[in-house]
Design a protein around this nucleic acid. Structure first.
Length: 279
DNA sequence: AAAATTTGACCCTA
DNA sequence: TAGGGTCAAATTTT
C-alpha cells in the first residue's frame, strides 16, 4: 500500500470514528459526557487536519452510474421500467461540505427526491438534487437534517458541483456550493486552519444578511468544534423548513458564469488573510 | 396540467 | 444483512 493510500485509509478511519462520536453525543444526556465526547471529536478532527495538510483531497468520485442493468423489479404491483430505480454507488470520497445553518435555504433551487429515517438520529434526513439536474445536467445534491445538538438548526451536506448558474443567486450559490470554484476557498479554510473554525469576513454581504449563522464545519465529511460563524447571502430569506425550501426557485433568470461570480470576491486575498486563520 | 413532494421499493456498501 | 442513497409511481400542491 502506497503511503498516500495509507493516509487516505487513516483519514477514512478517523472520519468513521468522528462520525460515531457524533452519534454517541446524542445518546448521552449528561453534559459532562457530551463535553468529553466533543473533546474526543475535536482531537480526531485535529488528527484528520494534520493529514489534510499534506495530502490534498482533490479526488472527485465520478458518478459511475453503475445501476444494475435490469432487474424488472416491481413497485406496488407495477413492473418498473428496465434500468430505472435502484441506488448508485455511494460516493465515499466525494468532497462534500457540511454546513450548519438556521435555515435550509441557500439560494439554490432544489428538488426533494427522498427522505430517510437515519439510525441513531431523531430527525429524518431529506435528500435534494438540483432542480436543473436534467435540463442543465447539474449534478449538485445536498442532504438536510435537523441538528441533533440544536434542533432549531439544520445540518446541510452539499455534494457535487452546481453546473447550473443563476445570476440572482449567484453570490449565494458561490457561498453554498460549486466545490471546484467558489468553495475551493472553503476547502482552503479547513486545511489552512487545521480544521478549526474560521470566521468569514464577507464584508459587503454582512450588511445584506446579518443574522445568518451558517457554519462550515468541514470540507470533508465531518464537523469541527466549535463551528465557525459564517455570514452568507441567503439569510435575507425567511426561515424555512427543508421541505419548504426545496421549492425555492432560482430558475427565473438565466445562467451566470462562475468566473463572473468570482469577480465579486478576491478569494486569494481572502484566503491569504492571516486574520482568517488564527492559531 | 404541470411541478413538486411523498413514500416504499430497490440496490450498493460496509 | 443493516443502513443509507436513489428512483419513480402515487399523491399533493400550485
Amino acid at each position: 500500500m502506497r503511503s498516500l493510500e495509507k493516509e487516505n485509509s487513516v483519514i477514512e478511519e478517523l472520519m468513521k470514528g468522528e462520525e460515531k462520536v457524533n452519534m454517541l453525543v446524542s445518546f448521552f444526556p449528561d453534559e459532562k459526557a457530551k463535553e468529553l465526547l466533543r473533546e474526543v471529536r475535536s482531537s480526531i478532527m485535529k488528527a484528520i487536519s494534520v493529514f489534510n495538510e499534506s495530502s490534498e483531497v482533490s479526488e472527485v468520485c465520478q458518478e459511475s452510474d453503475r445501476r444494475s442493468e435490469s432487474t424488472g423489479r416491481k413497485r406496488k404491483g407495477v413492473t418498473v421500467k428496465e434500468g430505472k430505480g435502484g441506488s448508485r454507488r455511494r460516493m465515499s470520497s466525494f468532497p462534500s461540505r457540511k454546513v450548519v445553518a438556521k435555515t435550509a435555504e441557500d439560494g439554490f433551487s432544489w428538488r426533494k427526491y427522498g427522505q430517510k429515517e437515519i439510525f441513531g438520529s431523531s430527525s429524518p434526513r431529506s435528500y435534494f438534487r438540483c432542480t436543473h439536474k436534467h435540463d442543465r445536467n447539474c449534478q449538485a445534491t445536498r442532504q438536510v437534517q435537523k441538528s441533533e445538538e440544536d434542533p432549531s438548526m439544520y445540518v446541510i451536506t452539499y455534494m457535487g458541483e452546481h453546473t447550473c448558474k443563476d445570476p440572482i443567486n449567484a453570490t449565494s450559490q458561490l457561498l453554498a456550493s460549486a466545490p471546484h470554484h467558489a468553495s475551493s476557498c472553503l476547502i482552503s479554510f479547513a486545511s489552512g486552519n487545521n480544521g478549526e473554525n474560521i470566521e468569514l469576513p464577507f464584508g459587503p454581504f454582512s450588511s445584506l444578511k446579518q443574522e445568518n449563522d451558517e457554519e462550515v464545519l468541514s470540507n470533508m465529511t465531518s464537523g469541527s468544534s466549535p463551528p465557525p460563524e459564517f455570514t452568507t447571502f441567503e439569510q435575507m430569506l425567511p426561515e424555512m423548513t427543508p421541505e419548504e425550501t426545496s421549492g425555492f426557485d432560482c430558475s427565473n433568470s438565466d445562467c451566470l458564469d462562475l468566473g463572473m461570480i468570482q469577480g465579486f470576491f478576491d478569494f486569494d486575498s481572502i484566503i491569504n488573510q492571516e486574520a482568517m486563520f488564527p492559531n
